[in-house]
């Protein structure tokens, strides 16, 4: 009875389509264990897709070009990763053993300072804060060490899942897209397809630009550190490139491991430390003055305030992944709002 009218069928099609989209969104939002690797692999897919398209011009099949890109990428990511994991486990063990020593050292130093102050001024400095802080830090550290296997398990899961998802996303993107479009109702088909396309293109351009930017920054830093002869130059460069993807906060995050490692190796006031800091500043200056204005800013035309707010909101909801995704998502939302605004407010030429 309901199906007898043509108008009802159109309505049912639309409802079915919207229900599927809502279900999908709900699924992604409620299962972070899947949605985070899924969004990471989507980012990788967007960044790598132009390269695959470019390879396909040489009459290579899609699968072949995807495999080529993956082999090259595995080479560049795999080697630092194999270097990082043993070092990481070694150093966490180190920290585990040296933590009590450091604590003892700080307490002794603190006593010397308080004694010094008491002798000079006659005031006794309250020592509640320092011990509170120490217990707090100790708690965090032991918590981290205890949970480390958990983190490593998640990381391993991601290391397996992200390339897996990315591979099939690149290879079968067109099939997925066609399938999805095939049940898009006729009334909204053209507009929906167009918005989806512009959304994907904007996100893709952004991540491709960011990918290139990260490679430039990472490359400069790796090269500089190699010339200076600092240990772990490749890892540090890789980390700097990776953190560079996060706007504003990223460069500062990237410099922390460099400072820590140089401090352990050469001391806080050594000339190497200064050189490392200068190198990082130069790399970021190159990024800010030459790479960013030509590559990224043309793609994402957002006010700096909106960028800062979206990074904070992103980090609040999805951690580092959120910080990476926030900007293009906001840019895309802006695009969709503009599209709808134009649809509603612009007068049709009649």
């Amino acid at each position: 009875m309901i199906l007898s009218s043509r108008k009802n069928i159109v309505k049912i099609q639309l409802a079915f389509f919207i229900v599927i989209i809502i279900l999908f969104c709900a699924l992604v939002l409620t299962l972070p264990r899947i949605s985070i690797p899924l969004s990471l692999s989507y980012i990788l897919f967007l960044a790598l897709n132009p390269i695959v398209s470019w390879l396909m011009r040489f009459r290579l099949s899609k699968t072949k070009s995807t495999v080529i890109v993956f082999v090259i990428l595995a080479f560049f990511i795999g080697i630092p990763l194999f270097k990082v994991i043993p070092v990481l486990s070694l150093q966490t063990k180190d920290i585990q053993y040296s933590l009590p020593q450091i604590e003892q050292y700080i307490i002794v130093q603190y006593e010397i300072v308080t004694d010094f102050i008491k002798a000079k001024t006659g005031h006794e400095v309250a020592d509640g804060y320092i011990f509170q802080a120490l217990t707090q830090i100790e708690g965090w550290a032991s918590d981290f060490v205890v949970k480390l296997p958990n983190y490593l398990a998640t990381l391993l899961e991601w290391i397996f899942l992200v390339p897996f998802f990315t591979f099939f996303m690149i290879r079968d993107a067109d099939t997925f897209k066609k399938m999805f479009l095939s049940f898009t109702p006729n009334i909204i088909f053209e507009r929906f397809y167009y918005v989806m396309h512009v959304f994907n293109r904007q996100l893709g351009d952004y991540f491709f630009a960011k990918f290139v930017e990260a490679m430039i920054v990472g490359g400069i830093i790796t090269l500089g550190l190699l010339i200076m002869g600092v240990n772990n130059a490749v890892i540090l460069g890789f980390v700097a490139g990776l953190t560079n993807i996060v706007p504003y906060v990223g460069p500062f995050l990237g410099v922390i491991p460099a400072i820590v490692l140089t401090m352990i190796e050469y001391g806080l006031t050594s000339p190497t430390m200064g050189a490392v800091l200068i190198l990082y500043s130069v790399a970021n200056a190159v990024d800010v003055f030459f790479v960013f204005p030509f590559l990224v800013s043309k793609i994402v035309n957002l006010h700096p305030m909106i960028v800062a707010i979206s990074v904070i909101v992103g980090s609040h909801y999805a951690g580092i992944t959120g910080m990476v995704i926030s900007i293009p998502v906001v840019a895309a939302i802006k695009l969709i709002i503009t599209e709808i605004y134009n649809e509603i407010y612009t007068e049709r030429s009649k």
Binding site: S53, M56, R57
Partner: peptide
């Protein structure tokens, strides 16, 4: 055939 398809076609099969 739509504009997005044409764009993909230009990239992959000029």
């Amino acid at each position: 055939m739509f504009k997005p398809d044409l764009e993909h076609l230009i990239e992959k099969h000029p």
